[in-house]
Design a protein around this nucleic acid. Structure first.
Length: 512
RNA sequence: GGCGGCGUAGCUCAGCGGUAGAGCAGGGGAAUCAUAAUCCCUUGGUCGGCGGUUCAAAUCCGUCCGCCGCUACCA
């Protein structure tokens, strides 16, 4: 991949509830990928935002007794605050209620319509007024008295409402070809199989407009309809770039390199979205990757159980970088995983405080105390030195590969192998003993460690930006020498180092 | 029901045809520069059951058991 720019997106989050750890997780993962590419010299466009239309939002606003727009303003702000709290380095926060988005979604609709892929039909089905939703025939049960009811117990009636349809059925073959020609289009692999088998079952045309509520983008040329929320929402990836204004320089970022999404919305991104784009004659995104869910202390996260985790609570207790680290370290990315206190504390104490934090501390304080606080000179490496340095030098490429595959957990594992090797090295070399017998060799050993720590700090910046900035500060790495390419130039000998300070304090459980 | 995935050390998982692996937890030892952190050694598994293919199977095939995912308009 030598492409010079990257366009990475998070989903836009639906504003019918407050942000929780699941939203934070997807955003952090996307953020790490975006930051990595920037570190790797790419020009990156990274977007997030909120999806604000639809009947549920309209109802929630009514229930709250506020104007719908005011309601979405407030809910959207909650997601912006969450993004900032998690250190998400987004370039744009797009809202579907913004004029620029409405214009963009409308333009996309017109283009698809003009290409002959939208037609007016009728949406019919079993409708429960009480639930305000449609049910399929197999969900309906008939009571002894003859009334038909939904699974919720609400009575249903057969209704027919005019609706625009998208000719999704016409894209079945092209979608299957897409999945076959570009196996990387959907990840992880298991998710890809599900999508393929879904499409193979056959696609029906998709109802893409509603007349039963009005909180949405009016259908161009027929304002009695509003757009189906997914047609509206997916368009955000284009509206953020200024579509349909092709003269907008941001349009150069299209097609998107990666849409990172939760597994629940994989289908919309891997089936509907490419179909809409094909219909519009627009290039397709390169990759859609679905991440898994978090369970909380072994239980599914849900409002009814009352175990929904607010990421801000975690940050308040453990700190931002440790939580970012935990979220990406604990799961094989793509799968589900459990969030529990013991696991968090173990990870933070063992891997951050002991393995990495303590390594930095012992190395830097040896330099501070025995090398006059300046970076020792590089010397011809011994076999041990060369082996360790080679491991570190391999990291940038290893991480590039992991990031391309969205294998963020594996990336951390690769870095930790080097950290463990550093601890083994420092013990074997024992610079504290060399101090009495061979100060030149002691200095050489510490220099090797400093160089390796600099590489570690550099490649971990996307995961833990604040703390790694502090590590690089302590190694006196200039701001302009913190990118991946800068690693090819070693730090000058004799560089003055500031006094070492702890990076990751051990977490001590507060006395109960 | 259909399609797919998983089941490997106490825990979380990697391996996916050639004499069972990592991290954590447990046990023993070393060291004492460091956030009592670190390093070394080590206990521990008939790789879900049963059949089959092969000189050789966690690894391929069949079957059974147990979990889980997907199966369209729900964010």
């Amino acid at each position: 991949m030598t492409q010079a720019h990257r366009y990475i997106t998070t989903p836009i989050y639906y504003v019918n509830g407050a942000p929780h750890i699941g939203h934070a997780y997807t955003s952090v993962a996307a953020d790490v990928i975006a930051r990595f590419h920037r570190l790797d010299g790419k020009t990156v466009r990274f977007t997030t935002g909120t999806d604000e239309h639809g009947q549920k939002v309209e109802q929630a606003a009514q229930a709250a007794g506020i104007a719908t727009q005011a309601f979405t303003d407030e809910m959207s702000q909650g997601f912006r605050v969450m993004s900032d709290a998690m250190g998400i380095s987004y370039d744009d926060f797009i809202r579907t209620t913004e004029p620029r988005h409405k214009a963009s979604a409308s333009a996309l609709w017109e283009r698809v319509r003009d290409n002959g892929h939208i037609y007016l039909g009728a949406y019919e089905g079993w409708y429960a007024l009480r639930d305000e939703s449609f049910y399929s025939a197999d969900e309906i049960t008939e009571r002894p008295d003859g009334t038909k009811v939904a699974p919720t117990g609400a009575p249903v009636e057969w209704v027919r409402e005019p609706s625009y349809f998208f000719r999704l059925s016409a894209f079945e073959d092209r979608l299957l070809k897409l999945y076959e020609d570009q196996p990387g289009f959907i990840g992880p692999e298991g998710r890809r199989r599900e999508i393929v088998s879904f499409v193979k079952q056959g696609l029906r045309d998709l109802s893409v407009s509603r007349t039963s509520f009005s909180w949405g983008i009016p259908v161009p040329g027929d304002p009695a309809h509003v757009m189906y929320v997914w047609f509206d929402a997916l368009a955000n990836y284009l509206s953020s770039l200024g579509y349909p204004d092709v003269s907008n320089p941001l349009m150069a970022f299209w097609p998107a390199d990666l849409h990172l999404v939760g597994k629940d919305i994989a289908r919309f991104h891997a089936v509907y979205w490419p179909a809409f784009l094909m219909a519009a004659g627009i290039e397709l995104p390169r990759r859609v990757f679905a991440n898994g869910w978090w369970t909380i202390e072994g239980e599914k996260m849900s409002k009814s159980i009352g175990n929904v985790v607010d990421p801000r609570d975690l940050i308040a207790e453990f700190g931002l970088d440790p939580i970012r680290f935990f979220l990406l370290r604990e799961v094989p990315f793509g799968g589900d995983s459990d969030l529990n206190r013991r696991a968090i504390i173990t990870r933070l104490n063992v891997e951050l405080a002991n393995d990495l934090g303590n390594l930095v501390q012992r190395t830097l304080s040896l330099i501070a105390r025995n090398c006059g606080g300046v970076l020792p000179a590089r010397t011809a490496p011994t076999e041990d030195d060369a082996a360790l340095l080679a491991m570190a030098d391999a990291l940038p490429d290893l991480l590039r590969g992991c990031v391309e595959r969205c294998a963020l957990t594996e990336g951390l594992e690769d870095v930790w192998k080097v950290i463990r090797a550093c601890n083994a090295y420092i013990d074997r070399m024992a610079p504290w003993a060399l101090r009495k017998t061979d100060t030149a060799r002691m200095a050489a050993v510490l220099r090797v460690l400093a160089d390796v720590l600099r590489t570690i700090g550099t490649v971990l910046q996307p995961y833990m930006p604040d703390t790694m900035a502090r590590l690089l500060d302590q190694l006196a790495v200039p701001a302009e020498a913190r990118a991946l390419t800068a690693l090819q130039t070693r730090l000058p000998d004799g560089l003055e180092l500031p006094a070492p300070q702890g990076l990751f304090p051990r977490y001590v459980e507060p006395a109960a």
